[in-house]
């Protein structure tokens, strides 16, 4: 199982702050595509992905047990 954390407008769109997906393993790119298809999150083109609190690249692999976060463009400061 992989946990996916949602923030900001993605959290509001999904109506929750965490999703659980059953999958053996997949790439970041695959995860983004799956999120776009299965949940009504809109385009994730400009959304970054963090795996276990580190920014990840499209080709990085996500393993069961990982905590993933979808990071829309940040606006702190």
């Amino acid at each position: 199982m992989i946990k996916v954390l949602l923030f900001a407008h993605l959290q509001e769109k999904a109506g929750r702050d965490i999703l659980q997906i059953e999958d053996s393993s997949l790439t970041v790119k695959e995860l983004k595509k799956m999120m776009e298809t299965n949940y009504e999150l809109g385009s994730l083109e400009h959304v970054m992905v963090a795996v276990n609190e580190e920014y990840a690249l499209d080709q990085d692999t996500i393993q069961p047990g990982d905590v993933v976060a979808l990071i829309p463009p940040v606006s702190g400061g």
Binding site: F7, A8, Y55, I71, V74, S75, G76, G77
Partner: peptide, 11 residues
């Protein structure tokens, strides 16, 4: 850098 990499969002 805060405005680039720190996961904080403003509404």
């Amino acid at each position: 850098r805060i405005k680039q990499i720190v996961p904080i969002w403003k509404k």
